Simulated scan of single mutants.
Amino acid sequence: MESSQPDHFVTLPLVSKSDESARLPLAINVVAKYWGEDLKDQGPASRATVLIDGIELAEKRGLACYIYKGSLKDLKKRIDQGIPPIVITPGIQDVAQHATVVSGYDVEERRILTYVPEPDTVGAVPEQKFEQDWEQDDMTTIVLMPADMKDLLKNDELKFVKSNRICFEAERLRQGGKAGEATEKLYEATELDPENASAWSQLGGIYNEHGSDKAVACYEKAIKLNPKYYLAYRGLGNYYLKKKDHSLAEAYYTKAVGINAARFGPIYKNRAVARMQLGNDAGAREDLVKYLEQTPGAQDKKAIEDAISQL
């Protein structure tokens, strides 16, 4: 890639599937390896690992971490400093979120370049589309760098740097079945930064999982702060579906799909349920077809195909 490599580019190490640690997120492995820290086969083996586990392991190996609300300007600054940032972007199929490593940017073509775990391969995304996708998760940025380079960031305003860290810790608690502790953490985050949409949406998620009506106000707060916050719209759809308010469930699912139609395949199955209850069989059928298109590995594929044939 030497001859065609753009000026604003960080050359990242290849972490192949065979080399990748199954215990840590790929993005963390790649950036740690870039800084000379091989985290292969590190981390807990007994459970699925969340990003904060990888971050903490990298910190034990001498790296510093900052989790904040970024911008395109900030991303470009990091690349030009030789720092490959990790961003939280929409997932695909049945994965709601994805951690992506940014490896550079192309000034002439106005594209953001992202790491792809294949030899001599990068992803090139138009800046506008990248920004629109990134905005759906409040432009969350993770910077891992050697602790002795921290002065590069000391004069920068890193928005939500403390509250976002707390959000990542709260997500680990939630996944570990400690909803009460996670809720306390998230309230701490909202007190630190009342305008952190991620904290409010996560709080709504915990309340939603436990059937609490408090979920609505939290999701609505997240949407007020960030009208593109996909997960909050999806969360409200799930809340109202459980409450059997199928009209509102369909409305919020439709708003989420309007923000990103390809982000999360299972949302179409949920909207199909709401539409069937509203007597919209044609719409439900369309949604079930879309669900199978976007979730090709769906375990309930046969049952969904049967349902489609009956609509």
Rank of each mutant, 00 (worst) to 15 (best):
D19Y: 10
E195K: 13
G283L: 05
S212H: 00
T114V: 12
Q277N: 14
T11K: 15
V122E: 12
K159L: 10
H8W: 11
K40M: 05
V102C: 08
V143A: 15
A215E: 03
V31M: 03
D213I: 12
D19P: 01
L39H: 13
K242M: 13
D148Y: 08
K243N: 11
A251C: 05
Y115Q: 12
F160P: 00
K40T: 13
T140R: 12
G91R: 02
A45D: 09
L51S: 13
K17A: 08
A249P: 10
E157N: 14
A99L: 13
D94F: 12
R275I: 00
A179M: 02
V289Q: 15
G70K: 01
K244H: 08
Q294W: 04
G70R: 00
F160H: 15
R271G: 02
H246S: 10
E109L: 11
K159R: 13
I28F: 01
D133R: 14
L24R: 03
G123N: 07
K255F: 10
I88W: 03
Q42W: 10
Y230V: 01
V122K: 11
V15G: 03
E135D: 13
I86M: 10
K178D: 09
E286T: 08
A22S: 11
W35T: 07
T190N: 01
K244F: 00
C218Q: 11
A32K: 09
L57I: 15
E250T: 02
G283T: 05
V31E: 06
E157Y: 14
E2V: 15
L72I: 14
L173S: 05
Y291I: 11
L225D: 00
G204S: 07
L236N: 12
G204F: 04
A27D: 01
N29G: 13
Q294N: 08
L14D: 12
S198N: 14
L39Y: 08
R275N: 02
G36L: 01
Q81H: 13
V87Q: 07
Q132V: 04
E191T: 11
Y253S: 00
K243V: 02
Q175T: 05
E293Y: 02
L192A: 05
V101P: 09
L158C: 11
H210I: 08
Y207E: 04
D38N: 12
K60T: 12
D19H: 03
M145C: 14
S198F: 02
Q42I: 02
G43C: 07
Y252Q: 01
R111V: 05
E184P: 05
I67C: 05
K302I: 12
M276T: 11
W200G: 11
M149L: 15
K243A: 14
I166M: 01
S18T: 10
Q136M: 14
G205W: 06
L203P: 00
L24W: 02
I55R: 12
F168W: 14
A303P: 01
V31Q: 14
D94M: 04
E181Q: 12
K73M: 12
E157W: 10
S163I: 01
E250L: 01
L158P: 07
P126D: 03
E108S: 11
D137P: 06
A179L: 02
A232R: 03
D19E: 10
N155M: 09
H246L: 08
P25Q: 05
